[in-house]
Design a protein around this nucleic acid. Sequence first.
DNA 1: CGCGTAATTGAGATATCTCAAGACAGGTGG
DNA 2: CCACCTGTCTTGAGATATCTCAATTACGCG
Lengths: 242, 242
Amino acid sequence: MSIKCRNCPIRGLPLFQQMTDSELAFMEGFKVGEMQVQPGTPLLSAGASSPQLFTALRGFGLRYNLLPDGRRQVLSFIFPGDLIGLQSGVMHQMTHHVEATTAMTLCVFNRNQIWSLFRNLPARAYDLTWLAASEERFLGEALTAIGQKSALESLCWALARIYRRLEALKLDDTKSVPLPYRQQDLADALGLSLVHTNKTLARLRERQVATWNDGRLTVNDIHQLEEMGLVESRLPQTRPLM
Amino acid sequence: MSIKCRNCPIRGLPLFQQMTDSELAFMEGFKVGEMQVQPGTPLLSAGASSPQLFTALRGFGLRYNLLPDGRRQVLSFIFPGDLIGLQSGVMHQMTHHVEATTAMTLCVFNRNQIWSLFRNLPARAYDLTWLAASEERFLGEALTAIGQKSALESLCWALARIYRRLEALKLDDTKSVPLPYRQQDLADALGLSLVHTNKTLARLRERQVATWNDGRLTVNDIHQLEEMGLVESRLPQTRPLM
DNA sequence: CGCGTAATTGAGATATCTCAAGACAGGTGG
DNA sequence: CCACCTGTCTTGAGATATCTCAATTACGCG
């Protein structure tokens, strides 16, 4: 009933690095199961030391921090192909929350086996480090957006980054990708108020740069969007899929 | 002329995990040299693919992003014991800048050997991943500060974090640690203007919570500082030293 | 049909920014 | 030894991007 890694529906996308046969075999042992969750389901909680890691196969999620008084910082949006819980996996302590925004399908891994991965499959261990470094890089970019950019610039940055990632998943035709979050989620990701986020999105819509409604993001001019968001041009890199 | 790892001046601090003899031996082979740099020296530049990694042995540095128009986001302060260039090491591409703020002494490693580390010393490879995950966690915390907290809260958060880290280095008596940066550096780290940072620091000084001048940070009440900064309490963890 | 959630819009409030000037310390050259 | 310069810190005051409050609309669901 659980999908075999060799039949993984996203593995073949050009976004992801291809695996060798031995890696595939290892991953099928590493994977202990599959999980289907409803929208709103918490996957990991700060403070807890979860015994599991996940990879999102299908659906969308959210990673966030909470302050004691309820303020929320969204750290990142979770898309198919993302690894979830690496921090808890290697540091034995989760510091943020993860929850499913839509229904999701997740591959489940056993944290205890991480160590065997390091001992037996150095290439996969390296990939794990690559993913951690990649997250670090992303958060640095986000920090730069929130800390230095105007609301309009930040928004363009975020939408451009999201669009590029989702278009690589080929979930749909180009120009338009599914983005089933609330404006509040994006506001919390960018440290902006909901109202201001809404008004800034309206400006982008009027200017015919990008439109986000009914859970779909439509980008008319990705280059202009990236320019307005001061997105650093980068060589597109394929990423490992765990 | 280059210090042997077994004589490393910071290795014995309780902040750091102790190494086994075989790890020590490996590290001495991994370390290809030592570097002394003057204040202001750039160590790594965005875009470049540096062949080297460093560990700060002595001195202070800065990690930052630049926008095309000169705005600067400081990502983190670099203290003795910090690994520098892991991103470039595993992703083959640097996305931020690193420079020395004070004179520094650095251990130099060869990027090419990272792979041999993964193949031969899984425990050390694991440590590398741990460090990357740790950076990721830190940046998430910073994001939460900049995105959600008030200027006063952010400042308290930053000073508390810095103080805790430096006191663990036992560079000096408690209550006071060296912090040889400019107010502009902290402002750029928190996404605040220099002027506002200055005025907020003045408030902390008046309230007798913390004082930062002449390159020294003096904390009168670390618990109040952490409380004001909404610092999440965390179990103190020792960290690997590369 | 009524309710709850999300999006939208208007308008006044404010935390933070920008501009500007002065104080202070350290370094340099005459 | 003094005059000058530069970089950093400090302080005041007006400007503004963004926030908060509040009301309205739209929509899906039971």
